[in-house]
Design a protein around this nucleic acid. Structure first.
Lengths: 144, 144
DNA sequence: ATTGCTGCAAACGCTTTGCAGAACA
DNA sequence: TGTTCTGCAAAGCGTTTGCAGCAAT
């Protein structure tokens, strides 16, 4: 509940700063996505909302996810086929491991890895704004 | 020329091992992709072949790229929208930096980064098979 | 009242697929 | 000859867009 409140707040601030309109549907989307834990795609969110009687059209779900991405409220993880989203916790970045057997997604974070990446960028005169590290393989359980 | 020969060889071996057929079109695709340097998408390859009078249908280009991916002859880099391919040099892996201003793609490789990733996987009991690190930002030239 | 947002359906771009004919083994 | 591959066109899938009506300012 607290989490949903914070996100609502961040969305509100963003909309005000950008001169965009504060609408019911946008907050319904935020509400719904806090209830989907982990990673989800646009269509799952659409169906979830619809089945909860808080529906938004598919187009609006896509448009709002775009907006929330610009607002820094959700991450977008591009995979083959559809994009996956997840709620972005300010000051907490992480990368992903995908189990190719059970399709589970694991998150991890390693400070040294981030530092090393920054170092590599620096050495190449590249100024990074974001990055995505994805590792595929077998998780503990799926190795027998 | 030497490079094309090697790839033809690898494809031939793969097809034989898998009991697949050795066809003209498949080798035409390999021939063409050695001439596209850097990163390319399926359609560019299709149009390139077509304009060179060595055409294959779009469907076959897609099917063949799939095959070459399975054969370990090309990498597939999944980006938003379409997939990008590049010829895989055996024993040479690298990651990518994308300049968000000029759209140039830069390749880099760092041994320590690879090691650190392996270490992180090991610590998590995860057995990696492949990974993809993509960094977006501004390249040297585009920072003014 | 003005402007931006929403829902609908249609279009989109990339990719895959069903099928009939052609090429390989 | 039997089976696999190819080309074509159509369908598929996730996503975006044009437009008319609706809601927020």
């Amino acid at each position: 509940m607290k989490r949903a409140g914070k996100l609502r707040e961040r969305l509100k601030t963003y909309l005000e700063n950008e001169g965009l309109r504060i609408t019911k549907v946008r907050f319904n989307v935020v509400e719904a996505l806090t209830e989907m834990d982990g990673h989800f795609d646009a269509d799952s969110l659409y169906f979830y909302m619809r089945q909860r009687g808080r529906s938004a059209s598919r187009a609006t779900v896509y448009r709002t996810l775009d907006l929330l991405h610009d607002a820094g409220i959700v991450y977008r993880i591009s995979t083959e086929g559809q994009a996956l989203y997840e709620v972005m916790n300010i000051d907490e970045h992480h990368d992903h491991m995908f189990c190719i057997n059970c399709n589970q997604i694991y998150e991890f974070y390693n400070k040294n890895l981030e530092k090393l990446q920054d170092k590599i960028c620096h050495e190449n005169g590249f100024k990074p704004t974001r990055h995505s590290l994805r590792i595929w393989g077998l998780c503990k359980e799926c190795q027998e």
